[in-house]
Design a protein around this nucleic acid. Sequence first.
DNA 1: TAGGTTTTATGCGATACGGTACAGAAATAC
DNA 2: GTATTTCTGTACCGTATCGCATAAAACCTA
Lengths: 201, 201
Amino acid sequence: MRTGTEKEKRSRGRPRGFITEEVLEKVRGVFLAKGFTGASLDELSAAAGLNRPSLYAAFGDKEQLYIATLRFYGTKSIEGLDAILAGPGTIQQRLARVYSAAIDLYTAPPHRPGCMIVGTAAVESPTYPKIAEAAAELLAAIEKSLERGFAASDLPRKPAPAARARMAGAIMYAIAIRARLGAKAADLKAFANSMVPTICA
Amino acid sequence: MRTGTEKEKRSRGRPRGFITEEVLEKVRGVFLAKGFTGASLDELSAAAGLNRPSLYAAFGDKEQLYIATLRFYGTKSIEGLDAILAGPGTIQQRLARVYSAAIDLYTAPPHRPGCMIVGTAAVESPTYPKIAEAAAELLAAIEKSLERGFAASDLPRKPAPAARARMAGAIMYAIAIRARLGAKAADLKAFANSMVPTICA
DNA sequence: TAGGTTTTATGCGATACGGTACAGAAATAC
DNA sequence: GTATTTCTGTACCGTATCGCATAAAACCTA
């Protein structure tokens, strides 16, 4: 897939009137709110400010567009995760910051969307194996990021960083689910804060 | 809603050719695999062995049918949860049994469906508030059941049973998500077993 | 048996859906 | 300037969708 940012030699014909990443950002809002099946191409192209043929030429069909959006969202999220985990403070403080930032995104108005992977990709998994595969890869990458954070900390080596990462990831997924089902940010933050010492024990 | 099992006085006209709960069980398989939006009325009525007008007369529209199915599924699940938690053994053993039973259901072939609440209701929440409400109620009931189990155990009163229940529930939701995204039962069971001592610490 | 009542079965209708054909527009290559 | 390539916009196609109208069937009451 072309990213639109590569400064490859200007191709010959009429240039694109959009930037791929901007389209993915706009489309993400629709997929995040409605899910893959629930989002119609009318809504998607309206949100993107593009006509359907342009979407199709750029991304292929709806499934490929969804997967591109999911990977874009996941990659951005993991970058944010890495950044917070590489920041200052104890691992407890950084982990708490990770949860706080996640909860702010998960409970953002107006939809309290939760996480795109947990909240929208999971439901399609049995029907669309490629979506399941992309989602599983992203969850694995999230846990790898957490594992790096724990490995670089001064926590005891037992439990292993990978085990701590699985646990920290599980708590994050649960928060995402509860956010999408309407849980209040304050409750989720209290829960997250109560889990940090357990994960870092 | 009539349950079909109430032995209310036989009504006057032609009797129903189906039992409500049996229909809900059959329909559940379709909703569980495809989600609310992804399941078509053709699939649903075929699975139920009913024609669409019969479904409509009995349940109303698709949303109401889905919510009835969700509540049926949730209530049955909570009964199973209560039963295991009321069984023999230490709370650690009983909690491990809960997870093992859940993982068997979540990873059942051919679809590895996970949990209906977490795997299919969550995605619809922003669009269908009544589904969100029913799902949130069921999660709360699950945590209440877990809380009763911890309250009846001989674990220390700190952390409080409610806090343990939130944690145990979070682990269950995370397992459901990972199951639907393709995780292997053995990996999930290892994870669950590793979490039991932490939850019961 | 006749009448009343509820559930089935067939089939339809209006709409929304995903996806595409085609012609015109905007850029580069020669 | 002309040709070529690529993208945009309109308009459309076939299909699948949800939900319902209608009439026949099955049962109870009398």
